[in-house]
Design a protein around this nucleic acid. Structure first.
Length: 272
DNA sequence: ACTGGATCCTGACTGC
DNA sequence: TGCAGTCAGGATCCAG
């Protein structure tokens, strides 16, 4: 499931293969994703050159030489691969961005939770992008920021840090892992956690995400691999999906609870 | 204004 | 073996 490190890895992986290249056409086999893909996408993008591939939260942005920017989201099962024109599309290969030199950027998404949109307005003003919280790995994301934002919030701290309006890129797995590292129970009310503890939580989120991105660097080659699924990380997880297994710190069994319909894992002794 | 729940989708897995 | 049910998950939308 793509979380921020996976999207960052995808961004770095595809960028050198499509930056500076002219779009010849866009082939859409399945337009019914999270939102329908715009009907005129191919006509709109034909002839435009990809100037820059960037990421904002879990959105990938393909900036062109005109006003238009392609907004891509991988949902939970999506992936992008760079393939050559000989490779026939397989199951769930919903969209091909075909470049003038024959390179294809192929979007595959089993569960169709992803999205492909296009906008000509300044990208930071786009509805999906403008409401996003700060990037977790920048200096704007601090303990002070989270502490202040969380005052009077009754939601759980886990739901709070997973809300992209507060901070982007913290998905279900890394939320559990970060809270474990920071020693905070996921069920705690966000508004009642001290500044000191938020500082520790922010440090933990940065460490966990940076580790995952560092590991992702080794899988970049997979994005130009015909049979390859983009390699997701073999991240070593401390609590996630370890129900009833021993806590790595205190050996007591890991607990599981549902928060906002998401499985959450924690140690009842190491987190409070 | 806030918060929690339903929702989209497919495939893997479980239980009868 | 097969079928029905459950779960996973990001982010939006909706209802209370």
């Amino acid at each position: 499931m793509p979380e921020l490190p996976e999207v960052e890895t995808t961004c770095r992986g595809i960028s050198p293969h499509i930056t500076g290249k002219k779009i010849a056409k866009v082939t859409i086999r399945q337009k019914q994703l999270r939102w329908p893909i715009p009907d005129n996408l191919s006509e709109t993008l034909c002839g435009l050159v990809v100037k820059q591939v960037t990421r904002r939260g879990k959105y990938l942005l393909l900036k062109t030489n005109k006003a238009h920017t392609v907004i891509l989201h991988l949902g939970m099962s999506g992936n992008l691969r760079v393939v050559n024109s000989q490779l026939k599309p397989g199951k769930h290969d919903h969209v091909d961005f075909v470049f003038a030199d024959g390179t294809i950027l192929r979007f595959n998404d089993t569960r169709k939770f992803g999205a492909i949109l296009c906008t000509s307005e300044p990208i930071l003003q786009h509805k999906l992008i403008s409401s996003l919280g700060p990037e977790p790995l920048t200096d704007q994301f601090t303990g002070n920021y989270l502490h202040q934002l969380s005052r009077n919030k009754k939601t759980t701290v886990k739901a709070f840090i997973m809300d992209a309006h507060n901070v982007v890129g913290v998905g279900n797995i890394y939320a559990s892992e970060s809270l474990f590292m920071a020693g905070i129970l996921p069920t705690r009310h966000a508004g009642k956690i001290s500044l000191k503890r938020y500082k520790k939580l922010v440090d933990s989120i940065k460490v966990i995400l940076q580790q995952a991105i560092d590991q992702g660097g080794t899988t970049l080659k997979d994005f130009v691999n015909e049979q390859g699924k983009p390699g997701y990380f073999q991240q070593s997880l401390s609590v996630y999906d370890r129900f009833e297994q021993e806590c790595i710190k205190c050996s007591s069994p890991i607990k599981q609870v549902k928060i906002a319909q998401r499985a959450s894992y924690f140690c009842q002794f190491c987190q409070r």
